[in-house]
Simulated assay, not measured.
Amino acid sequence: MLLTVGAEETPCAVLFDVFKRQAHMSHSELAESILSTAMLPDGRSVAAHAHDRSWLSRNVVHAPVDVAQARLFADFGYSGARLCMRLRSRRVRPMGAEEIYAMVTSDAAREMDSALEAAGEDARPYRNLLERIGANREYSAVDRAELALVLFVAAGCSGSATSAVRYTLSYEQRAFGATSPTPPSTQLASRLHAPDAENSGLHLGLIRVRDGYIVGKPCWVDPTGEGCVVGFLATGEANVCDVEQDVSSCHLRLWFEDGSWWVEDLGSANGTWLRPAGEDGERRLIAGERFPVGPGDELRLAASTSFMLVEGLPG
């Protein structure tokens, strides 16, 4: 069940709280920048209620995520860009671009993570996109601040990590002509130290491997489904995004077909390598071509992320 009225952990509550604590912006000031001009049954616009503390608290700041209405909010990109400019240009306590970026990527990012998870969301795509925005050296400090703020606002207003990520990627494409590229593996070097599955119901699981040790639980792929996509910004219930930054947004696909499990590199920036079970060597997959895989095989995505394949049943 999603959070109830008054819970401080809703994504929208985090949004308002962070702006109040770190940007010294009152709830009504923030509401002026993010509420829509749509008309309500009382004959007034949503934005006209920005200074009605009781209405704002009940219907926006502390409203349960499951009853939040998208029509209450203006376009996230417009709101984020407007807030960025407002924070940088105000006469009292102006904030620099780096300060704005830090505001939404440090403690605030962890608070938003927790709020999204509490609302039943997988927050990893949200965190991953924040990292990728910060790693894009082609953007100016102002560009990074604006994009991070757009993502933060979208997450707070929508209560959905998936929706926020998809919106921000679309906004980035419209505003900057492209999305942040997958960084080369060399940029992360310093950070790195088949029975019949369809009939038996056996799933193929991906288990993360770090420094030769298995970590975490398997991410199971259903042989009767459409498979899964593994990538830095792979959204969707069956997809896997527990990867490092040099892994592409949608890096590879794993699925069951014709009695076998298959893997395909989706044109990743830094490549995929397959080490078959019982073999020492590995080979790089050719993008766009499918390769058979099975339990015991190991997949390495770029320089930083490895998965062991196992077979079993979820739970």
Rank of each mutant, 00 (worst) to 15 (best):
P11A: 09
S163F: 02
P276M: 06
L147V: 13
L202C: 07
R208W: 11
C241M: 02
V5G: 10
R144P: 07
R58M: 13
F76E: 06
T10P: 06
R91K: 15
A70N: 11
R275Q: 13
L3V: 02
A123N: 09
G315F: 08
L56W: 00
L15M: 13
S268R: 03
S248N: 02
V92A: 14
G259H: 02
V243L: 03
R290M: 09
H251K: 10
V165M: 03
V221S: 11
T162N: 06
A38N: 15
M103L: 15
E282L: 03
T305F: 04
N128A: 07
V221M: 05
R53E: 15
G278V: 00
A238T: 13
I286F: 02
T4D: 12
L313M: 12
L130F: 00
T182F: 07
S304T: 15
A189C: 02
F176Q: 02
F16V: 00
M112T: 01
A303D: 15
T182Y: 10
Y101Q: 14
S306E: 12
D280V: 05
R208V: 08
V165C: 01
Y167Q: 08
R284I: 07
G312A: 06
Q22I: 06
C228P: 02
I34N: 02
R174Y: 03
A23Q: 08
K20R: 15
L299Q: 02
A13L: 05
M112L: 07
N128R: 09
E99D: 14
I286M: 08
V310I: 15
A155H: 09
